[in-house]
């Protein structure tokens, strides 16, 4: 197109629209700079540490059964009767609380004190004690502990933040 028409259309375009007309820009080989967004800043997420899960479980047992209160108390001076009564109550609460979050079952479902065959050689699942042969394997023995296997874990999601409070202090307002 003629220079004069380009000049006029550019003049009016810049005056009224603040930009060059497209065909003028193309003709001159200008390329519009696209907006470049800065890369999104990723906040470094705190990682979930092993201790967080442990503290979560302790916190639950304290909240539902007051287990930590019991373990931290000095019970040396109390009678068996008194401790027994407290333990009965604690046992019930702890058991039902635990049962809500974890489902456990024995690894070997047998009667302790009787002879059992040793099926798998899974070192984690079955521990051999007593006269263990050199090879470390045996076919049978006396069951001394059934073991505990975790079938299901149903704990609330862990929040990745520093956990330092196991149980809050309680203050009663008059």
């Amino acid at each position: 197109m003629s220079r004069i028409s380009s000049a006029f259309s550019s003049f009016f375009a810049i005056l009224f629209r603040g930009e060059l007309p497209v065909r003028v820009a193309e003709e001159f080989g200008f390329v519009r700079k696209s907006e470049v967004k800065p890369p999104p800043v990723v906040k470094p997420q705190p990682e979930i540490r092993t201790s967080d899960g442990a503290l979560q479980m302790l916190s639950i047992l304290q909240r539902d059964a007051r287990l930590i209160d019991f373990l931290m108390e000095d019970i040396a001076g109390y009678s068996d009767d008194q401790v027994g009564a407290a333990v009965r109550s604690l046992h019930e609460q702890s058991r039902s609380s635990l049962g809500r979050y974890v489902t456990l079952s024995p690894i070997i479902d047998g009667v302790e004190g009787t002879r059992t065959r040793i099926e798998s050689g899974d070192v984690q699942a079955i521990k051999l004690i007593g006269n263990v042969p050199a090879s470390g394997k045996a076919s049978q023995g006396i069951l001394r502990h059934k073991g505990w296997r975790v079938d299901k874990v149903d704990l609330p999601k862990l929040q990745p933040k520093e956990v330092t409070v196991l149980a809050p202090a309680e203050i009663e307002i008059e």
């Binding site: 209160d69 108390e73 009767d81 009965r88 604690l90």
Partner: peptide, 18 residues
């Protein structure tokens, strides 16, 4: 049936009411 009221605070055996 026994009724156990655990003690307040951290002294649950100490403050036990049986």
């Amino acid at each position: 049936t026994p009724i156990t009221i655990l003690g307040r605070g951290t002294g649950l055996v100490g403050g036990l009411i049986k």
